[in-house]
Design a protein around this nucleic acid. Sequence first.
DNA 1: AAAATTTGACCCTA
DNA 2: TAGGGTCAAATTTT
Length: 293
Amino acid sequence: MGSSEAEGSSPPAMALVIDELTKGRQSVATLATLFFVDPLELQTAKLLLEETMSTISKAIAILECVNSQQDHTAAQLESPSSAVTSKGPVGKRKIQSTRKAASRKRGNPYSWKRVTSATIEDGHTWRKYGQKEIFSAKHPRSYFRCTYKYDQGCQATRQVQKSEEDPFLYVITYFGEHTCEAAKENNPRCREPCVVSFESKKINEIKQEIAFSSFPSHKQENEEEVVSNLTSVDSRSNCLEQPAMELHKSSITGLEPGWSDSSSGLNYSINSYDVEFMGLDILSFELNEFFAW
DNA sequence: AAAATTTGACCCTA
DNA sequence: TAGGGTCAAATTTT
């Protein structure tokens, strides 16, 4: 017998996931020892932390991709329909004209996903405009548009949904690019790599966070420090720096009650990365990306 | 008072 | 027709 192979999805992916997780575990082990050495090792510890979280997150996300690939593959085959030029600033309830543009999203290949553990903020300011229960999903999906949509005509939107696999992960799908002024200011920052700036006094809290992500056995309840003031960035290169961003209240209400605490003083970003759906080659694409980092 | 969120209705695509 | 994306009135928060 021995017919317990994976559900037709790429078996090599499994091996890679295991590999990633193993590496992650190893890093954590090393890291653990560093915490008990002296402050000089803190820098190394930071790097390891970053790497570890990234590694684990990648692994999880690979699994998620494999899982949901069937769905998305179909969508990717869609060709971009001719542009629909419907603007219509919203007035009364005359929706007809704007709806066409709205529903293009379904088959829109010009989108990208990010799977992230704790990062909801990404340096842009978003305005929530809807939330939906999704038929095949456990968690509702929240819809956000750029705050400056009407001021400056910025068409960027995003959807945020809790991961099926791991409630500590969020799948964020971005549509369109920011054209607002704020984006131009923010972009240099936002585009900066995944960076961590830990205050040494916060290390314990961070360790706690790590523990949460790795072993979600208990939930943070009366924590006054909540991870909302975070930066989520394209982590494609490496550099260390963390501008303290003045982000507004996290707008993930409805996703995770208790997360939207704007009084967070802790700034760090944990393992976020982009997942672009490019058809069936997605895995190899991703893996190349991974190793390019 | 203004800004942001919630939520049911509306409409489009598959 | 079902499912999903957006609108906009009502409500809540700042």
